[in-house]
Amino acid sequence: MSLFKNASFEISIAKPGGLPPPIGAEIAFAGRSNAGKSSAINTLTDHNRLAFVSKTPGRTQLINFFRLQCGAALVDLPGYGYAEVPEKVRLQWQALLERYLRTRENLIGLVVIMDSRHPLKPLDRQMLDWFAPTGRPMHILLTKSDKLSRGEAQKTLLEVRRELAARGGQVTVQLFSSLKKQGMEEVEQTVSGWLASQPFSETEIAPGETNEKKHTPG
């Protein structure tokens, strides 16, 4: 079964203090508003409405947790870079994102969504810089690749990889299309590798277990 299939909504939070207990490994998804993050999540989970797709800020103002069948969580972070958001709200989102990315103990990796036609914008670079000091892996999805010719898509992929080469193996990059459902296997292989390299602690959920089972007195 697909790693992401049958994911279920767990909780939404608006402030760092509302984060759920760190149970199970977490894989975060981040990206500029309208870069295709929600569509990518819906495609990977094979669920049309799991992540809210909108052209205006809405549910993505929150950090949304979706529990995977293996016990890990897919964490949908607020979209960043939306021009019409008031400065106060934008700063609040930034603080929430930065706090989560830098301090969440069971966050094992970050998937960064970038529009393949406009990759590595300043806020994308800032996101990579925020997360880099953790030493954890990052994987970039160059979305909407179906809107480019094959030659243009490959050129963009090579250029982004070349520009990020100085970051070493911490950052990997691929093309992705939600519309064509292309690149799904590569994402799953990457994230599965992250999960396989993480030993489960006593507070984490082993594959096949659930929150309820883990907390049932023995």
Rank of each mutant, 00 (worst) to 15 (best):
M138H: 09
L91T: 06
I27M: 12
A206I: 08
T156Y: 11
H215D: 09
K37W: 00
P78N: 06
S8K: 15
L110C: 07
G109T: 12
I13M: 04
A40Q: 01
A14Y: 10
L96N: 00
N6Y: 10
L128N: 05
V112D: 03
I63P: 00
P207M: 11
K5D: 14
G183A: 04
P207A: 15
K88Y: 09
R125E: 04
R161H: 01
F29Q: 03
I23S: 15
E87H: 12
F66R: 00
I41R: 00
I140K: 02
K121R: 07
E204L: 13
H139C: 06
M1C: 08
R67I: 09
R161Y: 05
L123R: 08
P119R: 01
P21E: 04
N48A: 11
G71P: 10
T190V: 14
I140R: 01
D76R: 03
M184L: 14
E204C: 11
R150V: 13
K37N: 00
G193V: 10
P137F: 03
L97N: 08
K121Q: 12
Y80R: 00
Y100Q: 07
A73V: 12
D129E: 14
E163H: 10
E152A: 14
G79I: 01
C70Q: 05
F65Q: 02
N34D: 06
N42D: 10
Q154E: 13
E26Y: 03
A7L: 02
I27L: 13
R59W: 05
E185P: 06
C70S: 12
P217Y: 11
